[in-house]
């Protein structure tokens, strides 16, 4: 459910029984800017970030932003890259606890069981440090003949992902760019399954149909995107886990906001049907007020006709 406030899109979320308007901005989304055409890093002015956060009523986030390293009013790119890598390392730890790679592997193995022997490329969109791709490679979870590719717009994260894969001798690769642009992650859509984890809540509800439409244009064999099943229990759990596990204040802030911004299954299904009408979409949420501990992360999936 979305609405417009202060000229920007906001989400209607719930914390307990109280409806709240949630601004879409996570700090990690605001402090890095990339030129979509060239992929080059763009300078980000701190006062612009703070103005955006303050206008959205995110005073705590604005306070955190004021502590970020600045040179001549511009966020220091190297320091921001280092921060992003630290945040994603912490996220990886949380992903381990949530058993995220195993959830992905379980779905991919089930999907592949119906197509034995066929070549397969798994493309992780918005892979960050490539935790899922590197885990699949490290444990050879999908068997032989699988091309594992991680793609992210953030060159620093992709660069570190490639270094980590090399350090552990893993058979996977990483690309900086738009994974859903033609030719970036490969040309043969029919052998490609596009996955992501924790990406969908970074997109507004109005941007979701185009996200699925881009995968349809690539004629991918299937997509499966894991994200948080929203609800009051998830939000409370996210708060507790981020207080207990995360060290970076930015991680704590963005982690809880992620849970509050996550899209319900109805929104994801509607977007998948609008963007990829001939794919068979699936996504389920449980009862809102009953905790579904084992399904904190659940996928929206679609299979080519």
């Amino acid at each position: 459910m979305t609405s417009i406030r202060n000229g920007r899109e906001t989400f209607c979320g719930f914390l307990g029984a109280l409806p709240m308007m949630i601004s879409v901005e996570e700090l990690t989304d605001l402090i890095v800017a990339t030129d979509p055409a060239s992929g080059a890093r763009l300078p980000v002015r701190l006062d612009t970030v703070i103005a955006q956060l303050t206008a959205g009523g995110q005073d705590r986030a604005a306070r955190l932003a004021r502590r970020l390293p600045v040179r001549d009013g511009v966020l220091v790119a190297e320091e921001i890259d280092a921060l992003q890598i630290r945040v994603h390392c912490e996220l990886q730890r949380l992903g381990e606890e949530l058993q995220l790679p195993r959830r992905v592997a379980e779905w991919l193995l089930r999907w592949r069981a119906a197509r034995p022997g066929e070549p397969l490329r798994v493309v992780d969109v918005g892979c960050g440090l490539g935790h899922v791709v590197r885990w699949l490679a490290a444990y050879d979870a999908l068997g032989p003949g699988v091309d594992l590719v991680g793609v992210d717009l953030n060159r620093a994260l992709v660069g570190r992902a490639a270094e980590l894969a090399a350090a552990e001798g893993l058979d996977c690769r990483f690309i900086a760019g738009d994974a859903l642009a033609p030719g970036v992650a490969g040309d043969d859509g029919m052998t490609t399954v596009v996955i992501s984890s924790g990406l969908l809540h970074h997109l507004t509800a109005s941007a979701l149909p185009e996200f699925f439409a881009a995968q349809r244009r690539l004629r991918v064999a299937a997509f499966a995107h894991w994200d948080i099943d929203p609800g009051p229990w998830t939000t409370a759990g996210a708060w507790i886990f981020h207080r207990a596990r995360m060290r970076e204040p930015v991680s704590r802030h963005d982690g809880v906001l992620s849970a509050r911004r996550a899209h319900p299954a109805s929104v994801l299904l509607a977007a998948a049907r609008a963007g990829a009408p001939d794919y068979r979409p699936a996504c389920t949420d449980g009862p809102r007020w009953w905790p579904r501990l084992s399904e904190v992360l659940r996928p929206v999936t679609g299979t080519a006709p």
């Binding site: 606890e97 058993q99 759990g237 207990a244 501990l293 904190v296």
Partner: peptide, 18 residues
């Protein structure tokens, strides 16, 4: 197994650290 392992984290280890 990993599903129940996750429950040990979600119900005990995470909240108890907090």
């Amino acid at each position: 197994g990993w599903r129940r392992r996750f429950l040990a984290t979600a119900l005990i280890l995470g909240p108890f650290t907090f």
